[in-house]
């Protein structure tokens, strides 16, 4: 029934039928919306788009992943702690679903680490220890599956640099690793189609910090 409806939907919306499936079309539209989302409002709308796709194409992990990514990013865009947690609750559910679909998904674990950092930020006073350990554990899992997942490597670096900055210890020891990540980003980042590919710009910023 679902395929039938998909075909009809496709037909009736007059979309090209030649190459891409309706799912891919919807994903592409949502991804381009994602690329231009600047505000929380934009991001909410983009998250909704991914959610609609996730609901219908429920065997796909990407829409759930991107929905979670949107909500994690949204949590970093606002100040209110309770609302941050509400966003992260949604993201957490989506990541759980991705891991149910694909228990060894390196990107899902990397995103999970990012989510835990979001949880930590809400109340570093009481959550600092618990979530820094959780974030660390998730990154370990991501890198066990794919030792060159650039997003996991990037998040690991930010966590470590953050701690070093806090303690005023030397951060120049990280420069080599940042450099390696930078140079190899494209070779590490062998992503298929619509798979997660974010992080290059952020890693660039990390390098800028290092040079200062």
């Amino acid at each position: 029934m679902k395929t039938f409806t998909t075909i009809i939907a496709l037909l009736l919306t007059g979309q090209s039928f030649a190459g891409n499936s309706a799912y891919e079309q919807a994903m592409e539209a949502a991804l381009s919306q994602f690329a231009t989302s600047k505000s929380v409002e934009d991001m909410q709308s983009t998250a909704n788009s991914f959610q609609r796709i996730a609901k219908f194409a429920d065997a796909e992990w990407l829409p759930e992943y991107y929905q979670a990514h949107c909500y994690v990013l949204m949590s970093f865009m606002i100040k209110d702690g309770a609302q941050k947690d509400a966003y992260l609750d949604v993201a957490e559910k989506s990541i759980t679903k991705v891991l149910e679909l694909q228990p060894t998904n390196t990107e899902a674990y990397a995103l999970q680490a990012f989510l835990y950092t979001g949880r930590l930020v809400v109340d570093p006073m009481t959550r600092g220890r618990e979530y820094s350990i959780k974030s660390h554990e998730s990154l370990k899992k991501a890198l066990a599956i794919n030792p060159t997942n650039p997003r996991a490597l990037y998040l690991q670096l930010t966590n470590e640099i953050g701690t070093a900055n806090f303690f005023g210890t030397d951060t120049s020891i990280f420069c080599e690793r940042i450099e390696t990540l930078q140079t190899n980003w494209d070779s590490y980042n062998q992503v298929a189609d619509m798979n997660p590919s974010w992080g290059k710009n952020q890693a660039q910023n990390l390098k800028a910090d290092c040079n200062n």
């Binding site: 679902k2 909704n48 609901k55």
Partner: peptide, 11 residues
């Protein structure tokens, strides 16, 4: 920011 959609479609 509420999500309004038709069940079992991408619409």
């Amino acid at each position: 920011g509420a999500n309004v959609y038709i069940e079992n479609t991408f619409t």
